[in-house]
Amino acid sequence: MMDVLYFAWVRERIGLPRERVESQATTVAELIEELRGREERYEVAFSDLSALRVAVDQELTDFDAPLNGAREVAFFPPMTGG
């Protein structure tokens, strides 16, 4: 089990800020495939990966990053701080 978090328009498209997910995925990309297969709102949110960023256990990483034992995975658009 892991916590999957969504921010900004990703949160709006999926309709929730976080959820507990039971997953067999070993990489971020596999997790995204599982989520996309769930419902259309996930398919829509993950349709263009170039518009998304991911953090595993609060560290920015790539979509091919391994998940081994990750507790928290977050998806969000490119950041706009400052």
Binding site: F7, A8, W9, A55, L60, F76, P77, M79, T80, G82
Partner: peptide, 18 residues
């Protein structure tokens, strides 16, 4: 600006947008 997880949303007379 691009490595800290902040997202800005503008609220204007015309509407709201990220």
């Amino acid at each position: 600006k691009s490595r800290a997880p902040f997202w800005k949303r503008e609220i204007t007379a015309e509407g709201e947008a990220w």
